[in-house]
Nucleic acid binder design. Structure first.
Length: 532
RNA sequence: GCCCUCGUAGCUCAGUUGGAUAGAGCAGCGGACUUCUAAUCCGCCGGUCGCAGGUUCGAAUCCUGCCGAGGGCGCCA
């Protein structure tokens, strides 16, 4: 519709002797009384044209009413100078065909065609189970990847396995101690899982190797149950053993971005806006955590990715500047490296905070969260909000049966649509082919509202990608569900009083709504059961 | 002290990148099933968009300064 209205406005402006702006904005007003579409061109152009915005808008409206674009039945001026378009409801009827023809591809685009993107997320240490705090980044990263694919990007998802360094040594020592029936070392891991895993560990196994495998098995399984799967679990140890560290250091030295001082090797990160230069190799010869990380990102670029998106928890944001500096030090475009910081989730039970403490052992694991809340509810609840905002989740309210739980609302809308098909089949009713159905009988506001929502999906998906904001899809699918419930309530399909032609039209409307719900739920990674 | 994110209805959160009368859900009150799932729908109640300036036709949104919350500022990861 924009593609029709924008040229019409441009022509009208030219006809009035006004230079059209580079970009003419068309929006859908929040209030229905303001029409189906609206433009602020008159306000934008008023100054440069040296005219009163309302007068300009009035002249535009008159010109457009002379030869109205398709579907436009009225052009009105309102407020300080908005040009509002009122459309024949028929413009929405074509949405049904668009949705049905595209099916599960409705809303898919090729915007990102040819771009290779790597999304790295979760990347928890392989020293224990993933905990509840990892869930937000997990569902965010996964959903973002789904949206990237849906917008045509070539996407890979990776989990960086920090399987080297001090933490791993401590983890292995803790496992070995428990196996020997002793207490873990002073700074060791004391969680109950250590004791449990130690009892599983066969004699003669290297606790580091075995322990890592055990942790990864556990993490992979839980994340899988959450619906999250990675293309690769990238091992730091394997990378270091391959000589990537030396190659990275040599590369940095060649570029004069690394230097020796005080017995250590430093990254010249201040050259790219970092607060201070950072140590890469400590004076005792050990690498800092930074150096392997740089090597990892160098490897990502070597593999031909055009865009690297990293999803990190809020506690790592201080790390962004130095990593971006390192990217630039390697000669890469800093724009090709993005970090999405997810703010913390505060878990409550009956209004009281539940602590996710790390080493003490009494932590809420992702498994606990999944068992209590369920994967679909975790995903929808977490993805309903922007990751920029700290989030509070009350576990008691999100568990099944509660109205706080968005899962039921959305999934029930889908189930209701499928119940129409089921009951229709029982009664032996048959749906006519779409091209033989007259959709013009769809005039009820409930019907039109469903179509308006469906119409919005392609824009919503693009926005979700451009803003790295999966929650836009979640709020959309919830709104669509709301429209579906209203339609279901007020517009019976199979009721004997519903005329045949209206039944057929509504049936196809329901079909397209079901497709929309399925697509939306699919993008956030939640299931769309046909009955509840 | 410096940096990041945030502050919107009693609670949890949206807000189409600067648009018109700031929206949902929950909680509260009152209604709606002889109809395809009432886990639904409708109505009412509820606001100094943290505070103060500024930018302009127009600000929850942008700029500055305060106030407040969370997180971060290691030769730790």
């Amino acid at each position: 519709m924009r593609n029709v209205l924008i040229p019409a406005l441009r022509d009208a402006l030219v006809g009035l002797g006004v230079d059209p702006p580079v970009e003419i904005q068309i929006e859908q007003p929040a209030h229905r009384e303001h029409g189906d579409f609206s433009s602020n061109v008159a306000l934008v152009c008023a100054k440069s044209a040296g005219r009163n915005p309302r007068d300009l808008a009035t002249q535009l409206a008159e010109a457009l009413e002379q030869s109205p674009p398709p579907f436009v039945i009225a052009v009105e001026v309102a407020g300080p100078g908005f040009v509002n378009f009122r459309l024949d409801p028929a413009w929405l009827h074509q949405v049904v065909g668009a949705v049905v023809d595209a099916g599960d591809d409705y809303g898919r685009s090729a915007e990102g065609a040819g771009r290779k993107v790597l999304v790295e997320y979760v990347s928890a240490n392989p020293t224990g189970p993933v905990h509840a705090g990892h869930a937000r980044g997990a569902v965010y990263g996964d959903s973002l990847a789904r949206i990237l694919r849906f917008t045509g990007h070539d996407v890979s998802e990776e989990f960086y396995v920090n399987d080297r360094g001090v933490q791993m040594q401590v983890f292995a020592a803790s496992l070995a101690a428990r196996k020997a029936g002793e207490e873990p070392p002073e700074e060791g891991y004391r969680g109950a899982y250590i004791t449990e895993w130690a009892s599983e560990m066969p004699d003669g196994e290297d606790p580091l190797i075995w322990g890592e495998a055990r942790a990864l098995l556990d993490q992979r399984e839980v994340l899988g149950d959450l619906g999250v799967a990675f293309d690769d679990w990238f091992s730091e140890r394997r990378m270091v053993n391959s000589g990537a560290i030396d190659a990275t250091l040599a590369d940095l030295r060649d570029r004069d971005m690394a230097f020796d001082d005080d017995g250590a090797v430093w990254l010249r990160s201040t050259r790219f806006g970092d607060d201070k230069d950072r140590v890469l190799v400590k004076s005792d010869g050990e690498y800092t955590y930074l150096l392997p990380d740089i090597a990892y990102h160098r490897d990502k670029f070597d593999r031909g990715f055009d865009l690297l998106i990293n999803v990190w928890g809020a506690d790592h944001h201080g790390y962004v500047a130095r990593m971006r500096a390192a990217i630039q030090a390697l000669g890469h475009d800093p724009e090709a490296f993005e970090v999405v910081i997810t703010q913390l989730v505060r878990l409550e039970r009956d209004g009281v905070e539940v602590k996710i403490s790390k080493r003490s052992g009494d932590l809420i694991t992702m498994r606990d969260l999944l068992d209590e809340v369920g994967a679909d509810a975790v995903r929808l609840t977490y993805l309903l909000q922007s990751v920029d905002s700290p989030q509070t989740v009350d576990l008691d309210l999100v568990v099944a049966q509660s109205n706080e739980n968005p899962v039921f609302y959305v999934q029930m809308a889908n189930a209701r649509i499928h119940s129409i098909d089921r009951v229709a089949a029982e009664r032996g009713l048959v749906r006519s082919p779409l091209d033989q159905v007259d959709l013009s009988v769809l005039t009820h506001d409930r019907e039109l509202e469903v179509l308006r929502q469906l119409h919005a999906l392609p824009d919503v998906v693009l926005l979700a990608w451009r803003e790295r904001a999966p929650h836009k899809v979640t709020t959309w699918v919830r709104d669509l569900a709301g429209a579906v419930h209203g339609f279901y309530h007020d517009c019976p399909v199979l009721h004997p009083d519903t005329p045949d032609d209206l039944r057929q039209a509504r049936w196809w409307l329901a079909e397209s709504a079901g497709i929309g719900l399925r697509v939306g739920l699919g993008l956030v990674g939640a299931s769309a059961p046909e009955s509840m």
